[in-house]
Structures are given as C-alpha cells and as structure tokens.
C-alpha cells in the first residue's frame, strides 16, 4: 500500500526580483526521512521555508496534510522547523524557551513536554545558564528540542548537523532516523553527501533551483559515479601509459598534456580505479598522481542539472 503524502509540492517556483531561487519543483513526501541535497545556494532553504509557510510560493502550491501551511493556523501546530538562520531568545534558559514553544503549540503540560524534548536531544533541562552562553552545537540541539516538543507530523531541519561535534552528529543522526521510523515526515537539508548517506535512503537533489534527481540514495550515488569523470594522471611515461589505458583502462578519451601528464575522461570511474595501477605496471610507467578533477559535489550537481 502506498503511503499518504504529508507534503505535496506542485510545480512550486520562487523568485526574488529577477533571481529565480526555485523553479517548478514538484514532489510528494510521506512519513520517513527525506534528505534535501544540494550545494549552497541551490534553493534548499527556500524550499523548506515555503513548505513551512514562512514564504509564499511565487507560483505553484504546497499542501501539508492537505492544508495550506501559510493560511491555515491549525496546520502550523503539526509542523516543526529548525531553520539555519533564526536566532534564539538568548536571555531565556533552554527549558523556558522550549516550554514556550510547547505552550504556544497548545501542549497540555508545556514544562513536562519541554523536559522530555530536551532530554531527547541530550540537554539538561535544569541548566540555569541563559541560551546566550551556549555553544553553537548546544543551541542547535535546543532548536531541535523546540521543533519536536509538540510531536509534529512534519519536521523540517535545515542543515541540522552544522556546528555539532562528531559524537553529537551521530546522536542527531540517530534521532532523525528514529523520528522517521516512528512515522514522522522528516525533511533534512544538507549540502554534504556523506551526511545524507547516513540520514536515509530517500533523497531529493536540488541544484540551481531545480529538482535534479529524486529517489533512492544508492541509485543517485550510482548515477554520480557513472557520470563522465575527468582525472589527471602524472607519470614518467605519459604516451605509453595513454596508449595502454585506451586498450585496457576503461576510458573514453585521453589528452596527453605533456610527457608527464595525462587528462583521462571516463564514464566508468570504478573500473578505471581498478585498472590504472596494473596498466601502469604493464606499461612500465611510474604513477606519481591520480587526481579526480571534478569529484566535488558542485560538479556532480552541475552534471545532474545538465542531463
């Protein structure tokens, strides 16, 4: 049976003057964790803000549980948001801040709910220090606590792992996975591929404001691996190695820059990685460097957008 969608975006666009931030993006997301992956400035935060109702769409529509998040006050009680940019009420204690969020969401016992939410993010509810004295990681966890204190159906997390140390990242990742497993629709934005891999299997890739890919993380990872790659090879026998690579190395083309440097184009980067060393041995060439020139995430996104 197909799950019911919590969030449905229908050809949403957002522009600021002449700048198009999001262009005709459509998706339907149900319970579970979905990662919104894209480089900085791709439109991830704008998309999350439109889902939360903080920003109107310039075109298209968004519904959360069938309702308009911007105009329906009641549906806002079912949404939790951890924004990247917002500040906290700095002079409050964490318990006061989270309890205020609970109270304004209509939770029956705000303080008990706040204590529970702070416990979930491993913060001490009895900490008497004001939030202004907290580290970035602690503030981030308080933000998450205020977003989950009312047990929302939809949780939006904009780069939630930013500022956390490795142990806190692991704990936060586990928490996000647990919330998704409990039936909450969790949308997490990130520009870090490895983070997304740990967060969940469903991925929306946004680049240059467009939905570049959607689906299972492993399929997208394979797509990224199987795209054309350009690799720089430094060796002492460039021409001999180039000749043998064309025969055995799983390459599509080679540019000989000079006697010590090759630029290799391949669609089969995994195969190339396996064959470069034996081929060099066969050629009697020494390898000084094998360096991918376009393995950064930005290049991946450019490729996905340009397909």
């Amino acid at each position: 049976m197909t799950a019911q969608a919590v969030v449905v975006a229908d050809r949403i666009s957002k522009w600021f003057g002449d700048v198009v931030a999001v262009s005709e993006v459509s998706f339907a997301l149900g319970p579970g964790v979905t990662a919104l992956l894209g480089p900085n400035g791709a439109g991830k935060s704008t998309t999350l803000r439109m889902i939360a109702g903080l920003a109107p769409t310039s075109q298209g529509s968004i519904t959360v549980l069938g309702n308009n998040p911007r105009s329906d006050a009641g549906i806002r009680g079912r949404i939790g948001l951890v924004s990247q940019e917002e500040e906290l009420f700095a002079e409050q204690r964490a318990l006061e801040f989270v309890a205020l969020a609970a109270l304004l969401c209509g939770v029956a016992n705000p303080e008990a709910a706040a204590r529970s939410a702070l416990g979930v993010v491993e913060m001490d509810p009895d900490d008497q220090r004001p939030i202004s004295t907290y580290s970035k990681g602690m503030r981030q966890r308080v933000k998450v606590a205020q977003a989950i204190v009312h047990r929302p159906d939809l949780l939006l997390l904009d780069e939630p792992l930013t500022g956390l140390d490795p142990r806190q990242r692991l704990a936060m990742t586990t928490l996000i996975q647990q919330l998704g497993a409990q039936g909450m629709c969790v949308i997490v934005s990130s520009h870090v591929l490895d983070e997304v891999e740990r967060l969940g299997s469903n991925v929306l890739v946004i680049a240059q404001g467009r939905l570049a890919a959607q689906g299972n993380f492993h399929d997208i990872r394979a797509l990224m691996d199987n795209r054309p790659h350009r690799i720089r090879v430094r060796t002492d026998k460039a021409r001999a190695l180039a000749s043998d690579l064309l025969t055995y190395g799983g390459v599509n083309g080679i540019t000989v820059v000079d006697e010590t440097e090759l630029l290799v184009d391949t669609h089969q980067v995994t195969l190339f990685r396996k064959r470069i060393a034996p081929t060099a041995r066969y050629s009697g060439a020494q390898l000084f460097e094998v360096h991918p020139l376009d393995d950064d995430l930005e290049s991946v996104f450019k490729y996905l957008v340009g397909r």
């Binding site: 919590v6 079912r78 109270l103 969401c105 209509g106 469903n202």
Partner: peptide, 27 residues
C-alpha cells in the same frame, strides 16, 4: 530514476485547534 513509491496526496486532515488568546498572549 526513482524506485521510491510516490506517496498519494492526503485529503485535508483535521488540524490541531489554534491556541486561545488567553493562553498565548500572556506568554
């Protein structure tokens, strides 16, 4: 390229009641 089933749009669900002014405003 997806093999993740697309969820079906949900019919509008009952939203949580809004919080009363006497509760929210003093806070």
């Amino acid at each position: 390229m997806t093999n993740v089933p697309t969820p079906q749009p949900s019919p509008p669900v009952a939203t949580r009641p809004t919080v009363s002014a006497s509760t929210a405003m003093p806070a």
